[in-house]
Write a protein that binds this DNA or RNA. Structure first.
Lengths: 247, 247
DNA sequence: TTGACAATTCTCATTTTTTGAGAAAAGTAG
DNA sequence: CTACTTTTCTCAAAAAATGAGAATTGTCAA
């Protein structure tokens, strides 16, 4: 094992199911001897990536809160997007969840979320990677990727059942300018996604709404599509005029 | 340079003032040659700690969002505390900001924040380290630290003007069970802090309110102190009864 | 206090990785 | 295609990680 991987391996042991680890457990799980594990953990603690918890165990440390805050504070996409999500759910006038997502190397990641009263409970929230090829949020992102980049992103995915179907679907989405998915991830939910593409800022992302099928008659759906699409392009434009140096 | 420090050094170049860096800039700033810098950045990108941005520059990556989410999801202190903060500001009935903080090794860090309408604008928010020896939030934490741990924490601080004064103050706070600070960090603000101490979970933290001096007559202040103290002990108790294995 | 007992750090010869200058390659814009 | 920038690659020398066990520190209960 070498370089960063050594540390990354340890950090990735921590999960929802198992958020605290003793050094002995980490040593076993990572296949390293105790003394090495102690040394590695010590370094991670010194840098704030791990933190001693009770009973000689460790949990993830404060460094992640700090870096996360830094991202929240410095990313114009996030700053503008977070404000926008509030407006969007206020104007939706049906129970729904608004998500801001973005392509990070090879995954579509949710970077902000906002819900109004009665919104569908969802596991999608800031910091969750989205399924790459399912749901409006992701598809609308894939649809607006240059061919070369798309191919690279899809490499990481398990070979697709029908690559051509997806390609055609993405072409259709690009043409229409938005994507609607029905019960594609969660049953009885509709996802409406619109692209946010700002090459100048190196950003390809999406803004999407998740609502209940039962709340959407045809007129409402049309209204929400319009809301989503116009909000997304509003955000894209505002990023163009934002004084960059930044992400 | 060795081990984690090499990576940590690069990551800590990223700041509010300068959130994107080219490899050449990182090389210069860290004193490493280009080829080394490229290698290091490559590793950080591979693990998601950095992310290519426009113009051959880099920004902080998605890994921080993911680990931050993991912490939010798995830390019972945070989970219970975040809910509680909502109740607290609702019951405050004056414009104010509620903060949940915790001692992380050698810093008091804000881990959750919640504001009601008209609340003081503050730079304190999730992910911000608090000044160690000023303000109710921090003092109330220090006051409830075992002597040995306190000494260790204060080591990192620049030598204090008057160590004895602080010690006496902390003794007084411990006796009273809460701390009020007036215009100690921001002018015309009052901070009210109450300790949250759960040795079984390895947690020493605080719950605090920040309000405007002008909004607080004597009765209101007494009410808010009571609210803060009782909410804090409620949280401490709920953590005792929570099924641990966790932080 | 004192004595278990567990957790953590230290030591050091050996093995493995990192380093860095320059060359080569890949990517981009004109 | 061409010039340019960015990025990766190469390899011998230098530096750091490794790991078994010893030494130390910390904890808790009598």
């Amino acid at each position: 094992m070498s370089g960063l991987d050594r540390y990354s391996l340890i950090l990735h042991l921590f999960s929802e199911a198992r958020p605290v680890w003793s050094v002995t457990e980490m040593a076993e799980a990572s296949g390293a001897p105790q003394s090495t594990a102690y040394r590695t953990v010590h370094e991670l603690v010194r840098q704030g990536f791990l933190e001693p918890a009770a009973d000689a165990r460790y949990r993830l440390g404060a460094a992640f809160l700090e870096f996360d805050r830094l991202i929240r504070k410095t990313d114009p996409y996030l700053a503008a997007g977070t404000l926008l999500l509030n407006d969007v759910i206020a104007q939706a006038r049906v129970p729904c969840l608004a998500l801001l997502a973005r392509l990070y190397t090879d995954r579509v990641m949710c970077v902000a979320d906002c819900a109004n009263a009665g919104a569908p409970v969802s596991s999608y929230e800031r910091g969750r990677p989205m399924p790459l090829t399912r749901g409006a949020t992701s598809k609308v992102v894939l649809a607006h990727l240059p061919a070369r980049r798309l191919a690279k992103v899809l490499e990481t995915e398990a070979p697709l059942a029908d690559d051509m179907t997806l390609k055609a679907e993405l072409r259709a989405i690009r043409k229409r300018g938005f994507c609607i998915s029905r019960s594609e991830i969660d049953k009885d939910r509709v996802g409406i996604g619109a692209p946010i593409v700002v090459p100048e800022a190196g950003i390809v992302g999406s803004l999407s709404l998740v609502a209940f099928v039962k709340d959407l008659d045809e007129a409402t759906e049309r209204r929400l599509v319009l809301l989503t699409v116009s909000s997304a392009s509003l955000l894209a434009e505002s990023l163009l005029t934002t004084p960059q140096p930044t992400s």
